[in-house]
Design a protein around this nucleic acid. Structure first.
Length: 551
DNA sequence: GAAGGAAGCGCC
DNA sequence: AAAGGGCGCTTCCTTC
């Protein structure tokens, strides 16, 4: 594989050819405006482009109509290697390391505002690349780390392409939906008519003429005065109350939430030219999940999904994995009994069929408890049964929890390490007797320990689930490219990704092939992570005009 | 008036 | 006896 490190030098770019060990074997220098043509010309020769950070290079290439198949995003791979327990840190670190640790992605607006003072320009990508290659060559579990770094970098390409293409969004459909639910758009600072009506009803029922239900403090006092001794004003707390004002209050909360989070202001801010373009942030969560920025992309409510409509003659292919995390747990722990349950399209039904639990609800609440650390009530009662039937799977998460409680680090299947615990509790070994003065009381320390144990318990499963999803996404991205011709947005392409769900925008006549490729990519991801271990990842796949029709 | 925390709620 | 993971966003409310 040819590796070419791209380096910014003022108005020009250096392209430095490297061997697998990161040593430079050749250099070309070109004016920045010739970069897109250079990359386009070299791309067919199976190049891995190496750059400091995908958000600083790839949006410009995409705007110029250039797509690349593979890259190394040094910012992201640095972050993984720095925390991986498979890596000898002394091979990786250098005077520049704090600069790489601190490097942040940019959005296009920032890049336009501050083109001249970028901390990335004070870092040397060639040196960092060489250090990473040396550290990787000496790492334990080299092939797992290789896979993780490749998948992480591919994710960065997919993220940039999704923002570039945008999720098709019909503002007219969205506006009609808002008007039906809330009434016509009010002038700035006024409530929509439907909310005003509900407000009057709430004030009447609670006998507080000036009540502002958007203020939790005010609302709580009003509820108490009405003889409703609630501890908070959350919807699920209020649902259990029997009082004439409550239905209107719950409806007010539901509609008010829609208005605030995804109302007309959201449309004005985030939808342009028929596209919703959030920023996806690969590696933005410590577990390896993506974060997002702008428009709340990771929590687009079901309520407004009817407005996501494929272009004329195009379709969405929407796919999600059923019970990703329990399946991943079965695979990473090598628990054949749980993998057997996972053979079923519904893993929880598979557990019922095996006689492990009485009903689907028990299976679900038990597994969620095992993965999140819920031990109270129903899910706690299920744990002994599950531990007997699935000793390896349950043992793996229990061990991760105990390690976290001891202040130790855990890691995912491919080698992403958990962050070190912070805080005073972590500075002390477990059994030092009673604390001295000015130290945390024992019960406070223990609470922190258990809380961190729940985090590390979940880290190994959530993080390995994120690795499966990244491999799925990376493989799918390349399969989609091969289905069409032209630029990214002219072929079937990804427009949305959320933990265990993808949305592909595709010309209608290719939709069936896209659905096949989505399934093939999922099977390939399973083999990449778990080899021949027999754990299935069945998908729900829908071909639809609107996102809301999926599922 | 800016900044930051808490409450609350949406997604997985 | 108590013990449920990860996010982003908007509003309210306190602090400086």
């Amino acid at each position: 594989m040819n590796r070419v490190v791209l380096v910014r030098r003022g108005a020009s770019v250096e392209a430095r050819e490297c061997g697998d060990d990161g040593r430079v074997v050749g250099t070309a220098r070109l004016p920045a405006e010739e970069l897109a043509g250079f990359v386009r010309a070299r791309e067919p020769g199976r190049v891995r482009w190496v750059w400091d950070d995908t958000t600083r290079w790839y949006p410009g290439l995409l705007d110029a109509g250039v797509r690349v198949e593979r890259c190394t995003d040094l910012r992201l791979t640095h972050a993984v290697l720095r925390r991986s327990p498979f890596v000898d840190q002394s091979l990786l670190t250098d005077d520049e390391t704090p600069g790489w640790d601190a490097l942040q992605p940019v959005s296009a607006t920032e890049a336009a505002l501050f083109p001249l003072d970028d901390p990335a320009d004070r870092l040397d990508p060639v040196g960092e690349h060489r250090r990473q290659r040396v550290a990787l060559a000496a790492a334990e579990e080299r092939s797992r780390l290789d896979l993780l770094l490749a998948a992480e970098s591919s994710g960065a390409l997919a993220a940039a392409e999704m923002t570039h293409a945008g999720l098709p969004w019909r503002a007219d459909v969205h506006e009609r939906l808002l008007t039906e639910l809330l009434g016509p758009r009010p002038t700035a600072g006024r409530r929509p008519a439907v909310l005003e009506g509900l407000l009057a009803e709430i004030r009447r029922a609670l006998r507080v003429p000036e009540l502002n239900p958007d203020s939790p403090g005010e609302l709580l006092r009003a509820l108490h005065a009405a003889g409703l001794p609630v501890p908070d004003t959350r919807s699920w707390t209020l649902e259990r109350l029997d009082h004439p004002g409550i239905p209107a209050l719950l409806e007010y909360k539901r509609l008010s939430r829609l208005l605030q989070a995804n109302g007309w202001n959201w449309l004005d801010t985030w939808v342009r030219d028929g596209r919703f373009r959030p920023w996806f942030l690969p590696g933005g969560v410590v577990t390896g999940r993506w974060a997002s920025s702008g428009g709340g992309a990771l929590s687009v409510p079901v309520q407004v999904r009817p407005a996501a409509v494929a272009d004329q003659g195009w379709r969405f292919v929407v796919a999600d994995v059923a019970q990703l995390e329990p399946r991943v747990l079965a695979g990473m722990s090598g628990d054949t009994a749980m993998a057997e349950a996972a053979r079923s399209a519904d893993l929880y039904e598979g557990m019922v069929a095996a006689g492990a639990v009485a009903g689907r609800a028990d299976a679900k609440v038990g597994m969620l408890g095992a993965m999140y650390g819920g031990t109270r009530g129903e899910s706690g009662r299920m744990m002994p049964r599950l531990a007997r039937r699935y000793p390896r799977a349950i043992g793996l998460v229990e061990e991760a929890a105990r390690a976290g409680e001891r202040g130790e680090l855990v890691h995912t299947l491919l080698g992403r390490g958990s962050p070190p615990p912070a805080g005073e509790w972590a500075a002390r070994p477990v059994d030092l007797g009673e604390p001295a003065d000015e130290e945390l009381p024992r019960e406070v320390r223990d609470r922190h320990r258990r809380s961190w144990g729940r985090f590390t318990r979940n880290f190994v499963v959530q993080g390995t689930g994120a690795e499966w999803a990244l491999c799925w996404l990376a493989d799918l991205r390349n399969r989609l490219w091969r289905l069409g011709s032209g630029t990214v947005a002219e072929r079937p392409h990804l427009v949305f990704f959320l933990h265990d769900e993808v949305v592909v925008h595709t010309p209608g006549h290719l939709a069936a092939e896209v659905a096949d490729e989505v399934r093939h990519a999922a099977a390939a991801a399973g083999r990449l992570l778990f080899g021949s271990f027999p754990v299935d990842f069945p998908l729900d796949v829908s071909v639809v005009r609107s996102w809301a029709e999926a599922g």
